[in-house]
Design a protein around this nucleic acid. Structure first.
Lengths: 170, 170
DNA sequence: TCTAAATTGACAGTATACTTACGATCTAGG
DNA sequence: CCTAGATCGTAAGTATACTGTCAATTTAGA
């Protein structure tokens, strides 16, 4: 078979490209989240970190990065900001001097409780323009795609097995 | 009606949240793009900027930001990097001393031609785990959602009317 | 015409997101 | 026991992505 002729270079090709749509949607999602949650001064990433620390008290930074699927280096500054806001605290692990364990403070637990409704409003708003059936279809396909592409990302999600050394698993 | 009881705070709720899935998918998409295009030393954003400048020679930075839907401030450094790599050039506009017009250099036009196959491979890989019907469904719904949410983002896309003052419209 | 408002590009500041590298520490193998 | 390799947190460097603000310039209205 002959090669396909080169397509003309157009913006329409960019607008229809998966990568472009993913980037736009992420921009929009962050924008909506920040708008709904601006009273709490928490970013989406900081929120995810708080939930993970709430769910796994005493987790360390490396495992936290696996549980919320983002880079360890990035996480360092996220943790510092949460420490500065007094939403989490960090304690040395008695049995391993390299590790620092993370816990929610009272203030962190409180803001987590209070922010939930705003987060839920934000999540709902992101999908609001679609009808309920389409929302379900989109989320289902996207969840599949993210899962099947997990290894393609630089920081794959390791929800369960990342915690094996914390006394919760195998 | 009574309020819904507060749902427990779990990571599963985070993993299923639209905002989380959009962020993960964006991370994965960038990772795949960079992998396929690493020989060209171009980021997804720099690629989009090159295509836009190719399509609209003599565009200025403000209109460019509207055409690819990203922030003017961010764009400043993107333009500087493209200038440093000698992929674009910047000329003052004769009729308006504030404006600097952007053009591809020969080297910029060349790399744009050469990178296209790698970009197409990257876009295909992002959707590869889904079957063709599901790919189409996902892209259709996502394109709809991005379009309908356009105004929710801080930098709405203004593909056409952003160019009215360039002698292409109105 | 002359000033007030808008526009343009630049800058500083914050927050992801990634890379590579490094010292401290732990663990396994010999 | 003692070193090789792995792991932990940290740091420096690059690149988006956004918030403001600012000066220079243009435009519109009184």
């Amino acid at each position: 078979m002959p090669n396909k002729p080169a397509a003309p270079i157009t913006m329409d090709a960019v607008y229809a490209a998966p990568g472009y749509l993913f980037r736009r949607m992420q921009q929009i999602a962050v924008s909506i989240f920040m708008e709904e949650c601006k009273a709490f001064d928490l970013t989406p990433v900081q929120y995810a970190a708080l939930v993970a620390i709430h769910t796994h008290p005493g987790i360390d930074a490396t495992r936290l990065s696996a549980v919320i699927a983002f880079d360890r280096s990035t996480l360092g500054s996220v943790i510092e900001r949460l420490l500065a806001k007094d939403f989490i605290e960090r304690k040395p692990a008695p049995e391993d001097k390299r590790i620092k364990l993370l816990y929610l403070t009272k203030s962190g637990a409180a803001i987590l409780r209070e922010i939930i409704p705003a987060v839920e409003r934000a999540q709902a708003r992101m999908l609001e323009p679609l009808n309920p059936a389409d929302r379900k279809t989109l989320m289902g396909l996207l969840a599949q795609l993210v899962d099947l592409n997990n290894e393609a990302s630089r920081v794959p999600l390791r929800a369960e097995d990342a915690l094996e050394h914390l006394g919760k698993g195998g």
